[in-house]
Amino acid sequence: MWRYILKRLLMIIPVLVGVTFVVYMILSVAHGDPVQTILGDKATEEAQEQLRAELGLDRPLIVQYGNYIWDALHGDFGTSYKNQVDVMDQVLDRFPNTLLIAAGAILLSLVLGIPVGIISAKKQYSFIDNASMVGALFGVSMPAFWMGLLLVIVFSLKLRLLPSSGMNSESLGLLLKSMILPVIALSTYSLAMIARMTRSSMLEVIRQDYISTARSKGITEGQVTVRHMLRNALIPIITAVGLQFGTLVGGSIMTETVFSWPGIGRLIVESIKSRDIPMVMGSVIFLCVIFSMVNLLVDLLYAFVDPQIKSQYKGK
């Protein structure tokens, strides 16, 4: 088991090298000159050349990339081109904000999505099933930013119940209040995904022989559902949740923009726009590590749910 974890952790390294290389190259060959973005149109040639040399941008691309990786390995992710702050400080400052709404969204998706999926599966083709699956289809198709704007119009503008944007961290109550709309907007897609996944995965086990056996033992229907059906249907659901969580962390860009949420998604977009290469790289590396860790965690969770998988890990 430990050997397996170690192996998986080591596998993050080539993934990181690949991701950073691709991102670095794309950013570097994209039109737009970081030096000009920093100094503006009106700086003198000399000043531009001097800064270019200071930033090492006058060297060949591959050398620049090598230098970057070398510094990064020593824990130095550089300073932002745009506002001269330390990249990792900034990323670590922003990431908890993203984590907050991503965790909220995944929690909401689980709490609502799994029960809805179970009920739909148990009452297949009933009105409830049809209604929730139409709802889920709606949720999957609805872009987060559009959902966000609709929520703002209803809950902020018309009903005046919730703030329309921003993260208010003055008190826990205000923070939770400012989280509600972004969390709902962000969770729409994953909630729908998880509900649909739970339903189809439940339907697969619902007619298995061991379910009839369980029922014949005389245990309650609730126990049958949770212990025998859900537990066996859980693997695909965990996979979906793991993937969704990764997507939520990295993909909250639109939601963060719509709600002016100071998270890492917005940081990346703003940094790309201003060709702030160190900031984009730092954020991407960070997200890449988080994503890989979540995936690893999901794989390990399988073992707890399914003894067959656990025994496979043992051999490795």
């Binding site: 704007l149 703002v152 119009i153 902020s156 503008l157 329309s164 944007s165 921003g166 923009t257 719509v258 709600f259 002016s260 100071p262 917005r266």
Partner: peptide, 12 residues
């Protein structure tokens, strides 16, 4: 307060 979207600023 930084609010990047114009529509959101008006709503705020």
């Amino acid at each position: 307060r930084i609010i990047p979207e114009a529509a959101q600023r008006t709503i705020a």
